[in-house]
Design a protein around this nucleic acid. Structure first.
Length: 423
RNA sequence: GGAGAGGUGGCCGAGUGGUCUAAGGCGCACGCCUGGAAAGCGUGUAUCCGUCAAAAGCGGAUCAAGGGUUCGAAUCCCUUUCUCUCCGCCA
């Protein structure tokens, strides 16, 4: 949610900035202004009526106490009339606030000025490339074939148990997963993030807070009997731990990390995008989240991008960093950098991390504030990024490091995995 | 899952229909006192909405959430939710 104040102050500017997203906000913003005006007008009338009614009730109380019950009886009529009127105003107010809220939730975050215009991922800006491209021999295999050859991932068994997109990791494959998780958590801890183990299910308020609800695309798995959602990322629990709180300025920045399983329905995905480990319903991820002072958030975003790039360097993977264009930008994000690794046998770039600054979008929905040094309560900025999502990292590791004698494991992982090669 | 007890400010806690504009305490902030500190004394100390250029001020709302009774609700009634205790089931 964006701040209503911005629409009150300069609605034209707001509409103009949404154009970068290809989002035509003109009608919506106009309606918001209308309803906002109504809401304020009605609130004023309601407050006036209630003030009168309160005064009257006090007077009646005094009369009763001084034994003038009869006089008080006469005043009761006026009180009933005021009450009826207040109820009408209250209903109008509730419906106006309800509509205003609903309209506001339809607005995505305002994009940062540096976001390039554009419709699709073709317009994303490549910021930097790093790491050496591997040279594969002629018989190089995609990771799903390697997984079978070395018996480290059993896709069929997973299908039997749950369905497509739920792989079973086995032997060194399972151990490699654990190694990556440990490595990522250790690195995050060294970088000052506090490790958490959050719930894997979240309630409605939480899912709304981070912007996962309303879920137009049906991305989340639901548990309807208990009104819970399986988390699509630990961003949801990590950020919502602070929902509806007021932090002290000295406690900022809050830096947290967590390993979690992530669940995504991925409705509508098909073809080579879902082959092997490319897109799964269940996967493992280590996430980093920061809650920061609004003046620092872009500095922090850069720092998080740098941190993730270093992880990729340590894993010796070829990577590139892109800045998402307006059309590709998530609903809640003001600016997002994607990190991609090159999966050599597939010959394609795979997104392994998405690092976003949500500015006040989530903070507004979550009422997450801090008390500034001047004693004022102000919304924080929230950021998060994957550091990292495992399956595509595994895909690239397997493909890029395959050799005649097996698959070589990057040095940083060897102590975690307890082996140097698969094969 | 069954039975019971509860949810009051940053925290503890009083409060059983009007004097709640929420006692008292702790904590915190500022001031006085002091060579400095502690103690002591004094003052202040929630959030949201509206009004205002803004602040102050003023009006309104909030005692878990929502609804109801009443001229008037922290207080009475209903629903939901969470916590605690006991029982049952269970890794």
């Amino acid at each position: 949610m964006i701040d209503l104040q911005r629409i009150r102050e300069d609605s034209q500017e707001v509409v103009r900035r949404y154009k970068v997203r290809n989002f035509d906000a003109a009608d919506l913003v106009a309606r918001i202004q209308e309803v906002d005006a109504t809401r304020r007008r009605v609130q004023k009338m309601l407050d006036g009526t209630l003030a009168e009614s309160n005064a009257l009730a006090r007077k009646i109380g005094e009369l009763f106490k001084s034994g003038k019950g009869q006089e008080a009886g006469l005043l009761k009529e006026g009180s009933a009339k005021l009450k009826k009127q207040a109820k009408e105003f209250q209903e109008t107010l509730d419906s106006a606030s309800g509509e205003l809220n609903e309209l506001m939730t339809r607005l995505p975050m305002l994009p940062h000025p540096s976001v390039p215009a554009g419709d699709t991922e073709a317009a994303n800006e490549i910021i930097r490339e790093g790491g050496a491209m591997p040279e594969l021999s002629s018989g190089a295999m995609p990771h799903w074939d390697l997984a079978k050859k070395y018996d480290i991932i059993d896709f069929e068994a997973g299908t039997r148990v749950a369905g497509a997109g739920f792989p079973v990791y086995k032997g060194k494959g399972a151990r490699l997963q654990r190694a990556l998780i440990d490595f990522f958590l250790d690195e995050a801890t060294k970088a000052g993030y506090t490790e958490y183990q959050p719930p894997l299910l979240a309630n409605e308020d939480s899912a709304f807070g981070t912007g996962n609800l309303p879920d137009k695309d049906g991305q989340m798995y639901q548990v309807p009997s208990d009104n819970l959602y399986l988390i699509p990322t630990s961003e949801v629990p990590l950020t919502n731990m602070f929902r509806d709180t007021i932090l002290n300025e000295k406690d900022l920045p809050v830096k947290c990390t967590a390993y979690s399983v992530c669940f995504r329905r991925e409705a509508g995905s098909y073809g080579k995008d879902v082959r092997g480990l490319n897109r799964l319903h269940q996967f493992d991820k280590v996430e980093i989240v920061q809650v920061v002072h609004p003046g620092k958030s872009y500095e922090v975003l850069d720092e998080m991008v740098k941190y993730v790039a270093e992880l990729l360097q340590k894993l010796e993977l070829p990577y590139r960093i892109t800045r998402l264009c307006g059309g590709d930008l998530g609903f809640a994000s003001a600016l997002t950098y994607d990190m991609e690794v090159y999966s050599a046998a597939q010959g394609r770039w795979l997104e392994v991390s998405s690092i976003s600054n949500f500015e006040t979008f989530q903070a507004q929905r979550m009422k997450l504030r801090f008390r500034s040094s001047e004693g004022k309560n102000q919304l924080v900025h929230t950021l998060n990024g994957s550091a990292l999502a495992l399956p595509r990292i595994v895909a690239a590791l397997l493909e890029n490091n395959q050799a005649k004698d097996g698959i070589h494991i990057p040095e940083v992982l060897q102590q975690y995995a307890g082996f140097e090669a698969i094969g």
